[in-house]
Design a protein around this nucleic acid. Structure first.
Lengths: 156, 156
DNA sequence: CTTGACTCTATAGCGACTACAGATTGTTAA
DNA sequence: TTAACAATCTGTAGTCGCTATAGAGTCAAG
């Protein structure tokens, strides 16, 4: 099959497949005479693996590590558990941060229930003060709320 | 004061201050004869405002909007409330997504309690299957768990 | 033989910085 | 005075995981 079909069966944009290849997540496939990539079932499986990992929000570096274990079936998979535990830890930490953030935002919102003029807006005044010490983005290995290009275009 | 002191009192890296200036969040300050930027209290306040917003995970575009309201004190601040409500909505949505993700990861982790060889590892086998339909990253305007450069270097 | 769908490579853009390189400017100690 | 050193300047490239072009080539159907 050609790249378009692989894209269709795995639900992956064509450019993303080529990107994964550049990044070394997928091996360079054979080519037709006309230089088109040709794939088979083994490529479908490998790409599905990558996409499944990504749907679980793993970084490509983490996926690379998991792929290495997949390619060395005799090796002990204890490190797979370790990696997964670490990833779960990142997610849990981010959840805690966002819950704290939500509380701060809600309490900020309390400061201005009815629309008034900006000069006396409690929200704007509060934001001019330095942030409280318990602010987010202290713990490393987590990320903001706003989408990059992917998330922003997801609904289009 | 020079940029280093502004950086110190606001807890902001020097490069970030210059970046905000390039982005138009901070006005171009006056310069000394030797071309050094000079700041006063008004700059401290404005930068603190930006940093406080950022510590609440607002996008720079959202901060720009809030700054416009701050600079037009006569205007109605109802849109400030609207913006903040939208932001709270984004955070809440991301929390829900991450909770679902945490559950998926935990149930995946269940598949391999003791370390075994990778050929029979339940985790790796499960990841080879296509992701379940309720996967994350469907709802737009949200983001991954992994840090960019900022988060990754935060602990160094 | 042409149209159109598909594919190819290469490159730039997103957000919010971070990290240099290489040049100046300013401050302090010998 | 001078030399070392810190601080600042501009400009550019890198981060992550794609996405979106431009411009050229390949291929099947009509």
């Amino acid at each position: 099959m050609k790249i378009g079909e692989l894209a269709r069966v795995t639900g992956t944009p064509v450019e993303t497949i080529r990107y994964y290849e550049r990044e070394g997540l997928l091996a360079d496939p054979p080519r037709t005479e006309g230089n088109f990539r040709i794939y088979d079932e083994s490529h479908v499986e490998r790409l599905s693996f990558v996409r499944h990992c990504r749907s679980l929000d793993m970084a490509l570096d983490e996926v690379r590590i998991l792929l290495r274990f997949k390619d060395a079936p005799a090796e002990n998979c204890g490190d797979v558990n370790t990696l997964l535990d670490a990833h779960i830890g990142h997610v849990a930490a981010r959840i805690r941060e966002l819950l704290a953030l939500e509380q701060q935002l809600t309490s900020l919102r309390e400061r201005c229930h009815e629309a008034r003029d900006a000069a006396h807006c409690g929200i704007l005044n509060e934001l001019s003060q330095p942030p409280r010490q318990g602010a987010t983005n202290e713990g490393g290995h987590v990320h903001g709320v706003h989408g990059g290009a992917r998330a922003r275009n997801a609904g289009k």
